[in-house]
């Protein structure tokens, strides 16, 4: 790719981030509602843990605190993962609602630029929102993170980005395949990910096939690794297997999802599924 072409694509990449920023700003009322929704969801998980002792599950204080931390980290991470996943998965659905899809698809840019631009905006957005909720959690619960190895947590978090993008892009294909039912499917995919990826429990409690699905889910390694790092100070060396697995999954998932997106786009253009009216 020549320098000029790269600059062209980079300009468009910035355009997608700029567009998403403007959209978040213009839909600020909705943003407020969703933020509140996420916050109370995480808080209710925190209080669920706090309430366990009153439910007759008498345990030592230390144990209870560990459980609460376990659940809170899970809830917070899930907020982030599902947020980014949804933002990417709904990129196409969103443009369909707005009626801009043909204009974006007609633009003289690489589809990769389009998908990466939306993904980058989603990541920034996910991080910002999760950080706000994180502050809320720290203020409301007594969180003991004295054992945390932040560097390890960060490494796993970063490595998780690639497979997360892959999953999002794969799901964003659904509304291209079926304009009517694609968007509902995205919710189903998210629900399954929640079930199998060990957000609130180790996946070892899952029955056979679900357990297997959990092993294949990149989110499992993300949750597991970040949790170990924050709660038990997992060393960077100890986290290498998790990081490696996530990177390999990402290196497979991202190109595969972009390739499938291209096939789905071709199919949509053959069948006239992009848009009909006009």
């Amino acid at each position: 790719m020549t320098g000029n072409m790269l600059r062209w694509e980079l300009n468009a990449f910035v355009g997608f981030i700029e567009r998403q920023k403007n959209l978040y700003r213009r839909y600020w009322a909705w943003e407020g509602v969703w933020l509140l929704y996420n916050l109370v969801s995480v808080l209710s998980i925190g209080y669920l843990a706090a309430g366990l002792s009153t439910l007759g599950l008498e345990q030592g204080q230390a144990n209870l605190h560990q459980t609460q931390l376990y659940l809170l980290v899970g809830a917070l991470l899930w907020t982030y993962l599902s947020l980014v996943f949804f933002e990417i998965a709904f990129a196409i659905t969103w443009e369909r609602w707005e009626g801009t899809i043909e204009y974006t698809f007609m633009a003289p840019i690489k589809r990769l630029t389009h998908l990466l631009g939306v993904s980058a905006a989603s990541l920034l957005y996910g991080i910002a929102r999760t950080a706000i909720i994180g502050v809320g959690v720290v203020l409301l619960f007594r969180i003991d993170l004295s054992h945390a190895n932040w560097l390890t947590a960060l490494a796993i978090f970063a490595a998780a980005t690639l497979p997360l993008l892959g999953l999002g892009i794969f799901t964003s294909i659904l509304p291209l395949l079926s304009p009517e039912k694609g968007e509902q499917m995205a919710f189903a995919v998210q629900g399954v990910l929640l079930l199998i990826s060990g957000v609130y429990y180790p996946i070892s409690v899952l029955p056979g096939p679900l357990h297997l699905a959990g092993i294949l889910s990149p989110l499992t390694y993300t949750l597991d690794g970040v949790r170990e790092a924050l709660l038990h100070g997992l060393s960077l060396a100890g986290a290498l297997p998790d990081v490696a697995i996530l990177l390999v999954m990402g290196i497979v998932l991202v190109p595969a999802s972009v390739w499938c997106f291209g096939r789905a786009e071709e199919r949509a253009k053959r069948l006239g599924l992009l848009k009909r009216s006009g």
Partner: peptide
């Protein structure tokens, strides 16, 4: 039909279009 991001302003929509065209 005009096909815009309806919450965004004309300027924001135009800027987005301009970005996609270099």
């Amino acid at each position: 039909e005009a096909s815009f991001f309806k919450e965004m302003s004309p300027w924001e929509n135009m800027l987005y279009a301009a970005r996609l065209y270099g």
